[in-house]
Amino acid sequence: MPSTVTSPLSAAPSSAPSSARRSISTLASLAVLCATIVASVAVGSKDLPLDEVWRALAEPDGSDATAIVRDLRVPRTLLGLLVGAALGAAGALMQGITRNPLAEPGILGINAGASLAVVIAISVLGLGEPSAFVPFALVGAGLTALLVFALGGSGRGGPTPIRLALAGAVLMTLLISLTSAILVFSARTLDEFRFWLVGSIAGRDASITYAVAPFLVAGLVAAVACGRGLNALALGDDIAKGLGQRVVRTRVTAGLASVVLSGIAVAVAGPVAFVGLAVPHIARALCGPDYRWIIPLSLVLGAALLLGADTFGRVVARPAELQVGIATALLGAPFFVWLVRRGQMGAV
């Protein structure tokens, strides 16, 4: 294959940052992620000295510290890590598939479908525990994604990105309306639902984390593998086809991965806003428009933001906690606006 054919997909466009800058950004992001992991295990509403935390990890005895660190903080950190990575990667995939910088995991109606299912679970079945909502939210998210693909992909001209995005946006508002219709008339449901709606990873069963982890990891691997195909999609369908890329296959793989990642994320943590939409933009500002970098970097930054925000939320309002959905926006939004103002945000 002549080199001119592969160059648009592999070589960086001229506007992209240098490879040194990319490596530095990646290393810095990984360092931030490691710091947030350490902080998330070490810091919490119960004050434990660092050496005690370390002892609880290395030589578990039956003490309270061991129970807190090993049974509460480690599973919670793992969950935050996975959910943040999933949301960041899913957002990058959605923006790549739809070629729209405003696409986010919620745009396919996934969060709205999960919300409706949770509201039905509360109002009809009387459930009240976040862990009990997980299967309902999963089914709601999955059914909604199927419906969006069926509606957006069946008209004349097939599943174009804009058609999918519009079908998702419209279905999303329809589902939100149905959800609100229940909430407006049932104060008891609203009373439970308002806490789920914020988005939180506190108090989730560790067994749930271990159950969803394999699927999330598989989704993340698939997401990273889509980078090259999404670079081709960014050039437009016709050019991508001309370059020998399988446009439909890329779109289906990336779409599926994004649905799995964001569907599971909303099921276990509730609709955490901001991460899926903003993190890919931050990644793009740091590493340029190459999806082989954007997706892994979004994954790392998403995890770092979610974990950092969760830890921040545990400390800032002691002894109460600020839910992670609120803390991500409080921490992330000013940084995001600062990046936009510096003119680092490129178009998709």
Binding site: F195, L197, F274, L277, A278, I326, A329, A333, F336
Partner: peptide, 22 residues
Amino acid sequence: RVVLVGIGLSSLALALTSYVLT
């Protein structure tokens, strides 16, 4: 740029609204 800054602001506003609701 207006839309991107707006995204940051609206997520802050949404977080405040959810906080007030809880």
